[in-house]
């Protein structure tokens, strides 16, 4: 083994890496919030609506779940580019992740909604609640319990998937790492440091989720 490890450049650019890690978190959290909104809408459409809108929801969900995330990113990057629609790398990654998250979350939500018996809806309606109240006070809190764990997993996935940003020129954690690695040729050292940062981010997310769960689901 005649390779000399040089960690100094990595330590020197650690602040830059950590700053880009925040960008990674930003895009993951944003895509997750949007994904929850779209996913909720898609799952409700898939359950309650008939006609073309339902088929739109189904094709979104199944396309998101059955093609590689990288291909989806390329579609938003290069595919839309063919129509002359160009987005910044940040938006490409955000749209790709949102598309993917919505598909997976929609299926989780659907499982959650299906786990609540219809009798509960009828009971709450007969107690004089309207549909909106039924959903916000009876159904959603119970669904949240069922989908909480899959949602945490999806959040972790969003962070891991955001690393694909480096292939569409987005300078989040991976993109920044690649930039420094190609500048200094210390590829192994930089990517090892980045692996550690990702690991820590994922652990923090899982820890925070566990803490939140113990507060949310006390009863």
């Amino acid at each position: 083994m005649d390779y000399n490890f040089h960690w100094r450049p990595v330590f020197k650019s650690l602040p830059d890496l950590l700053e880009s890690a925040i960008l990674t978190l930003e895009v993951a959290i944003l895509s997750m919030i949007l994904g929850i909104i779209f996913g909720l809408a898609l799952s409700l459409i898939r359950i309650h609506v008939k006609g073309p809108l339902k088929w739109f929801a189904i094709s979104w969900i199944e396309l998101a779940r059955n093609t590689p995330a990288l291909l989806q990113l390329f579609f938003f990057g290069f595919g839309l580019g063919a129509f002359g629609i160009h987005f910044s790398p940040f938006l490409i990654v955000l749209m790709g992740l949102t598309f993917n998250n919505s598909g997976y979350l929609a299926e989780n939500f659907r499982g959650g909604f299906n786990s609540i018996p219809d009798t509960q809806i009828r009971a709450s309606l007969s107690l004089g609640m309207n549909h909106f109240q039924t959903y916000t006070r009876i159904i959603i809190p119970q669904v949240l319990r069922v989908v909480y764990h899959p949602m945490t997993n999806q959040m972790v996935w969003a962070v891991l998937m955001s690393s694909l940003g480096m292939l569409v020129g987005f300078r989040e954690l991976s993109g920044e790492t690649q930039f420094f690695a190609s500048k200094t040729y210390r590829i192994f050292e930089y990517f090892a440091a980045t692996a550690v940062i990702y690991y820590v981010i994922v652990k923090i997310i899982l820890g925070a989720a566990r803490l939140m769960a113990s507060r949310l689901f006390k009863y």
């Binding site: 083994m1 390779y3 690393s163 292939l167 590829i187 192994f188 990517f191 692996a195 990702y198 690991y199």
Partner: peptide, 23 residues
């Protein structure tokens, strides 16, 4: 757990560049 908490793309680059180091 490490392999499930680090993006696959990082694992790929890391290993591809680590292999020559150990010959």
């Amino acid at each position: 757990d490490i392999f499930r908490s680090v993006p696959l793309i990082i694992q790929l680059v890391l290993f591809f560049n680590f292999a020559p180091i150990i010959g």
